[in-house]
Design a protein around this nucleic acid. Structure first.
Lengths: 162, 162
DNA sequence: TCGCATTAAGGGGCATACCACTTATTTAAA
DNA sequence: TTTAAATAAGTGGTATGCCCCTTAATGCGA
């Protein structure tokens, strides 16, 4: 008996639950798990879905524009694009007006995939907050929006060692 | 002009802001960035700090126990432990009662590091929610706790390809 | 016009975070 | 008691997500 599985009854409520950052990390994991569960048949991740739907909304974008849109570091976006390109869901071409730029476009297969995933993705988002009673859901979302917008400039750099 | 930097004024509010999962991911990134900024001198990450403080609270734990405590997949915990062990912040030894188990213990250097980091970590957590007026902060935290506890069993499996 | 700052991508490296498969040990069941 | 199920760790693989450094192209000021 190592008393390491469930709280030993005499254990106080974990102090981690008082830390906003810890709760946010856990909720992020939970949402990812729900998203994966709902969209299992489509072989897609939350970030990939965000990227595809952004392209559907905005049309052709370069990598920096995409990164700004979905709040991701530039090189992370590049990796996601690379995988989506390999599956022919998006395509890239050099801009003619600025030969440094590579424009990313949603392809027919990508557009079709979004259509098939939409309902499942919506279920994942709904399930993430369904434990709250209805009035509090809207309150939570507006609070999250406020926090994100207040720190929109700090969207990078989670880890960095020496 | 690629119209890819800032919303083109005629662009609607991004539909991503209506998705709980997107907001949670962004807020997670923001917290990580704030945490890194505040603790830059100590070369530590949010997860490493969670692990160290859990060991300080609970004493010696095996890897499965630690994973359960902080809501992480077993192998992720093992990797974090490996890095902390290399820095001599924690140590591992085989359990005598069950030779499968490896017990993780907080070392003197780890305990000292926690002391030095505590204030900075607290600032990061505070700054993550400081954009909300005081009464709403407590409401947000209790909502997050409720969502996390309601789904505590789903804490794994963000991504999985075929 | 020439050089220099700026900007877009690419490459390599590291830290979470998950899964599948395997090995060693313990426990439970036939 | 011998075998099978369960459990703890380890290993290898993939996907985010960030950094630094480099390369290529643009643009701007001297």
């Amino acid at each position: 008996m190592d008393a390491s599985q469930s709280p030993p009854a005499n254990a106080p409520r974990s102090s981690l639950l008082d830390r906003p950052g810890f709760l946010i990390r856990r909720l992020h994991q939970i949402h990812c798990a729900l998203f994966l569960e709902e969209t299992r048949d489509f072989n897609i991740t939350p970030v990939q879905y965000s990227l595809l739907t952004t392209l559907a909304d905005r049309g052709e974008l370069d990598q920096v524009g995409l990164a700004t849109e979905i709040g991701l570091e530039r090189t992370s976006v590049a990796e996601v694009i690379h995988r989506l390109e390999a599956r022919e869901l998006v395509s890239r071409r050099r801009s003619e007006s600025d030969r440094r730029v590579k424009l990313v476009k949603l392809e027919r297969k990508g557009r079709a995939l979004i259509k098939r995933v939409d309902a499942a993705a919506q279920r994942a988002h709904d399930r993430t907050i369904e434990a709250l009673p209805e009035p509090e859901r809207a309150a939570l979302l507006s609070q999250l929006v406020r926090l994100v917008e207040a720190n929109n400039d700090k969207g990078k750099a989670p880890f960095r060692m020496s």
